[in-house]
């Protein structure tokens, strides 16, 4: 059985012309075009390039939304098993387009195999979505790139999509953690690693310890008595019954709730949605996680100008750094737009 492939290439490799044709909108051709011919030859009997999408690099990058919509429609219509994009070598706009095609296809559950130079911005930005073979920085490396991509496609077919590590298969790391069932259970692997460490023989850690990014400290508040202070928490404090259904673990969202007119939080009005700690203390008195009562006192006493009348909340339990970062950026923007001077972030 052969799988059905759609190939994405730019105007140049699509034989439409060079820079002068870079504004070419999406065109759909039957069968392989340009480098697709060599790919098809290398994949005979295993895969068939049924269609080729050709798009000008400038068109794609200047009309990204439109281009993505067009490509999504084509893919939904053709329903290929796999997409091959490029190779784009070190061509920046072409790499960005191939990467973006990867993102669109990922959204549809269609895998993508591409080829790029390791410094192509399309790799850096979109590496999560595609298996990208490393190529040289110019099209002079086409003769090496095509067999390398065909080899990865073949492996993908033979292993029914369950590819091994980047080093084993010859693609550049996607920056993803991928689950698989190992031959030996974890405890046995741990003992083997312990023995290697004791004997001084080489071993490969299964997880490299993470490195977190840093933000420059912000200037201090000069005058508290005129400052608006906002409360933010990862402790999952929400109005009773969790109206927005924030997940008890691995949160996909945060909540924005009014505390306007509230003197404090209490058992009747608020609770925690967090599944990662004993909720009894917080449910009895939610001020233990989100100190509204004390901030109201300080507001009344004039120590702070104002307690911001909305608080922001999510569940930190098992929530990925990527989600947390996105929530943080959005919450910061809301606070900034509302003229908030500083935030108190509480964690459980």
């Amino acid at each position: 059985m052969t799988i059905r492939v759609v190939h994405y290439i730019n105007q140049f490799f699509g034989q439409k012309g060079g820079e002068e044709a870079a504004n070419l909108p999406i065109e759909l051709a039957d069968g392989p075009v340009g480098p697709g011919a060599a790919l098809q030859a290398a994949l005979t009997g295993k895969a068939e390039i049924v269609k080729t999408i050709i798009c000008g690099d400038s068109y794609f990058n200047e009309n990204e939304g439109l281009a993505c919509m067009g490509i999504r429609e084509i893919l939904q219509d053709i329903k290929p098993d796999l997409i091959i994009a490029g190779p784009a070598f070190n061509a920046g706009r072409y790499g960005m387009a191939c990467g973006k095609v990867g993102e669109v296809a990922h959204g549809l559950g269609i895998p993508v195999i591409s080829g790029m130079y390791n410094e192509n911005p399309g790799y850096e930005l979109y590496r999560n979505f595609s298996y990208i073979v490393e190529t040289t920085n110019s099209a002079a490396g086409m003769r090496q790139a095509i067999p390398a991509m065909a080899k990865l496609v073949t492996a993908w077919i033979e292993k029914e999509g369950k590819l091994g590590t980047p080093a084993e298969e010859g693609y550049m790391p996607r920056g993803l953690r991928v689950n698989f069932f190992a031959e030996e259970r974890g405890a046995k692997r741990a003992v083997n690693m312990l023995i290697a460490k004791l004997e001084g023989t080489p071993f490969q850690t299964e997880y490299e310890m993470p490195v977190f990014d840093r933000v420059a400290p912000q200037p201090a508040i000069l005058d508290l008595s005129t400052a608006t202070i906002a409360l933010v928490t990862s402790g999952g404090v929400v109005p009773k019954c969790n109206p927005n259904r924030i997940e008890s673990s691995s949160a996909s969202k945060y909540g924005e709730y009014s505390i306007g007119g509230l003197e404090c939080l209490c058992e009747a009005t608020h609770e925690t949605a967090h599944g990662g700690y004993d909720p009894v203390a917080c449910n009895k008195d939610p001020n233990r996680v989100l100190p509204v009562d004390v901030l109201r006192d300080l507001e009344r006493e004039g120590r702070i100008g104002k307690l911001h009348d909305k608080f922001y909340t999510t569940v930190g339990n098992g929530t990925s750094v990527a989600n947390s970062k996105a929530f943080g950026a959005e919450i910061a923007m809301h606070l900034k737009n509302a003229g908030v001077s500083a935030a108190i972030l509480t964690s459980t």
């Binding site: 980047p166 790391p173 996607r174 920056g175 953690r177 689950n179 698989f180 974890g186 405890a187 692997r189």
Partner: peptide, 14 residues
């Protein structure tokens, strides 16, 4: 994902 290594699930950089 039992952390005593009771069974075989594992993750890799991919």
């Amino acid at each position: 994902t039992n952390e005593l290594g009771y069974h075989n699930l594992c993750a890799m950089a991919g």
